Simulated assay, not measured.
Amino acid sequence: MTPRRLPPPLLDAALVVVALLDVWVNLDTHEPLRLAFALAAAFSLFLRRRLPLLTFLLTLPAVLLSDAIFAALAALFTLASLTRRRTLLAVCALVFTISDMTSWPSPNFDLSNTSTLITLGYTAATAAAPVFLGQLVQARRDLSLRLAQISEARDHERLLTAQTVLAVERAQLAREMHDVVSHQVSLIAVRAGALQVDARDAEVKEAAATIRRLSVQTLDELRHMVSVLRASGGRPTELTPQPSLADLHRLVESSGIEAELQTDLTDGLPPTVQRAIYRTVQEGLTNVRKHAPGATATVRIRQEGGAVRVTVTNTAPNRPALPLPSAHYGLIGLRQRAALLGGTVTSGPMADGGYELRLELPAMGTP
């Protein structure tokens, strides 16, 4: 767990307090000039983040006139952690060393004395310590920034890889849809057209015409979906216009079964709610056509208070259903769509042998 850092204002205040303690230990109140410069150096630490070089210069008189050097060391550390000008840091460290070695107003800087050289070495090391520490903090900050950039680049590369894989899968799916599904739907449309021409019975002609019309419509939608899938990685391709409540009458009339639509809704509902209603009715009528041959269906759509209720019911079939493949993905998709809008989808057989599909949604499409 990463330790929590002190807020910058609190840390600056703590440094000022330590600098004041340094002044209290090393200075006497009977030396007003030295005390004034030392106090100015201590309080100048509040400027160290915004004006690090000026702060260091303001602390130098205290170093020159007294032994209160903590403020100058703190200012030198801050300057080293914020600047990349190493020549400037070397000059500042040298100035600090000379100022600390000089006893003002009577300087005594005799390099011929061994003790002076030793003191000079210790003082230079004292000046170099905050410089190196500040540079280390700066390097650590740069390294953290670099690691963050590398992590961001890696995440972006991972996203691009995933998008590439998805594009390949979509292209493969587009090929399968074009080569298999579209081909078979085209054959259905051709055979239905031939049946429409050759048949003599009116009902057979009508059924063949309906099959042909639905096949052509399905083929158009499949071709558009193929173009959407193949456009992955390029400019976004707009989907076909999404259905609304205005399309329900045409859906019921072209369903190929005897169905009645009862609704009092207007087009004022959100588009997502309208699409959910349309897809529910579409799935219900498709299931009636597949699994209840000869049955009649009733579609009821009502808005009660803040909820919309849709029911698709059918009577019992009057002849056996063809064994068509079904994985119930349609109902699963309806439930997922309804759940996203805060609603529910239920379905099940009725007592008279029929079947009911029910959708309940908030009118605004939110939970």
Rank of each mutant, 00 (worst) to 15 (best):
V228D: 04
G365L: 09
I118E: 01
H249Y: 09
R335K: 14
A321F: 07
K290N: 13
I277N: 00
Q217V: 10
T344R: 06
D352V: 01
L187V: 06
V131A: 01
H249K: 15
D179V: 07
T315L: 10
S151D: 14
D100Q: 12
A153R: 11
T102V: 02
L361H: 01
N314K: 00
G284V: 02
A14K: 02
H291F: 14
T315Y: 09
T344E: 08
L79T: 00
S144C: 12
L245K: 07
L187M: 09
P271H: 04
R335M: 14
A71D: 10
L120A: 07
I98C: 07
V131I: 02
D28I: 15
M101T: 02
R84N: 14
A162E: 09
N318W: 14
P317I: 04
L53V: 05
L159E: 04
F96D: 00
T59A: 15
L111G: 03
A14L: 09
T29P: 10
N26T: 06
A125L: 15
G365N: 07
V16W: 01
L73T: 00
L15R: 10
N26H: 13
A339W: 07
N314T: 00
G348K: 14
A202C: 10
V299D: 00
T116E: 09
Q242L: 09
S112E: 13
P236H: 14
M1T: 01
Q217P: 10
R335H: 10
E360D: 13
A199R: 06
V165D: 06
E169W: 15
L21M: 15
Y278I: 04
L15K: 03
E304S: 15
L265C: 05
T2P: 14
D100W: 14
T344I: 05
E157T: 10
L39I: 02
H328D: 08
V228H: 09
S44Q: 02
A339T: 04
L117D: 01
E169Y: 13
Q303V: 06
L57A: 11
M177N: 08
K205Y: 11
L57R: 06
H291A: 04
V226M: 06
G121E: 07
P236D: 12
E206A: 13
L166E: 12
V91G: 01
R85K: 15
Q196S: 11
R302T: 09
H291I: 03
I118M: 07
P325Y: 08
L324K: 08
L229W: 09
T266Q: 12
